[in-house]
Design a protein around this nucleic acid. Structure first.
Lengths: 210, 210
DNA sequence: GATTTGCTTTACGCAGTGTCAATTGACAGC
DNA sequence: GCTGTCAATTGACACTGCGTAAAGCAAATC
């Protein structure tokens, strides 16, 4: 347990995360990673077979450090379906900023690298289970409209909560985090729980944009 | 006007589009493009300074061929605000599949290529104007809730209509196009025009998923 | 002391971009 | 016909970045 953080693979991952979390981060090369880790380029290959694997391992390491499950725990204890939906949107929505640096790097190589795509898909499948659970909670207490297909509802929630959507609103449009959360929550509640009141207060506070 | 389509730059762009529109298209190399154009690799450089420029020019050429403006025209003649919003969502949403192949290629290099990013941003800024116009139409006939900031409403509509959102729902989740359109329309009308009825019928037709 | 382990240094092969120079072929205009 | 010019070709090159390979070195372990 005395993971002193001084073993080389760990140092490489930590250095990689540090690179990726820089605000204007480009995709780091193997040389970048090696330099940042204080290690030779070949040493990186001694521990990771390819750059993609470094990135993928970095995301795993990060999830482990951040303890996603702990962050998402509150949503599992919620009583009603709408409460659970609300809690899940809040928890995940607020988790995104923590992983955005790494997510951006992975997403940048997903189009050209099957392995990165697989890793990202796995991660997103995990998140989708949270969506599915929230939808199921709605079904359980009858909040989900009868004619609505739970599978489709899950797809929609999953899309609303995607990193790309977060990126669009907060990074490109400059919304602040609270505004993003309120809006997505409103949309989700309106679409999945027919809670139209949730939408009326959204998009109202003008100071929420940069 | 007798753009015989036989001049080399045009042939290069057409060949590039053809490559990008293949269902499993990878990012084409300059050699790929040259081969597909029936021309030497150097000839491509004679007309375009870089690969990015080929891709960017291809998108412009495609917009021109498809005549985006014609596709979006119906939304400009709509009478009421909600009608206009509806028409715009339908028009743009149905236009996306036509540009998706190229959009995917551009999006794949956007993270690493400033020039590609600039080109894509321009294109998306054009689309955003359509969103802004639809929101303005809502404002004009009082359908937009008073407390809603038009700017923010535009951001939201723009995000709902993003290629990434379309990609997520139709490509990753396997929704069919009609289902996508209905859902986005429902969300947009509910969020921007308080038309909650628009949402009740959405997500209902189970056969809409693959 | 010999061996193993972890890392370094140096080098190479490969793909892909972008550049350069010399050459060919066609089609002007005079 | 001769000359220029333009478009395109061929073949070479430099550079970046990935991934591989081999030899050496130094500290830890047996």
């Amino acid at each position: 347990m005395s993971s002193t953080s001084s073993d080389t693979p760990t140092r490489i991952l930590q250095a990689t995360l540090k690179l990726l979390e820089q605000p204007d981060a480009k995709l780091p090369t193997m040389s970048d990673i090696a330099r940042a880790s204080g290690v030779s380029r070949q040493a990186v290959y001694l521990h990771f077979p390819s750059r993609t694997e470094v990135l993928v391992a970095a995301t795993r390491y990060q999830d482990q450090s951040n303890d996603v499950n702990a962050a998402l725990a509150p949503s599992r204890t919620a009583r009603s379906g709408t409460e659970r939906l609300d809690a899940f949107v809040t928890a995940w929505g607020n988790y995104i900023p923590h992983i955005y640096g790494v997510a951006r790097a992975i997403l940048a190589v997903v189009d050209t690298d099957a392995e990165a795509a697989a890793a990202w898909n796995t991660r997103m499948a995990d998140m989708r289970e949270g969506c599915a659970a929230a939808v199921q909670a709605l079904v359980d207490d009858g909040s989900l409209p009868e004619r609505t297909d739970p599978e489709q509802a899950t797809d929609l929630l999953w899309t609303l909560l995607s990193v790309r959507t977060w990126e669009n609103l907060t990074q490109t449009c400059g919304w602040d985090q609270d505004c993003y959360i309120d809006t997505i929550r409103g949309l989700a509640l309106a679409a999945l729980a027919q809670d139209t009141g949730a939408l009326t207060d959204v998009l109202a506070h003008t100071e929420g944009r940069a």
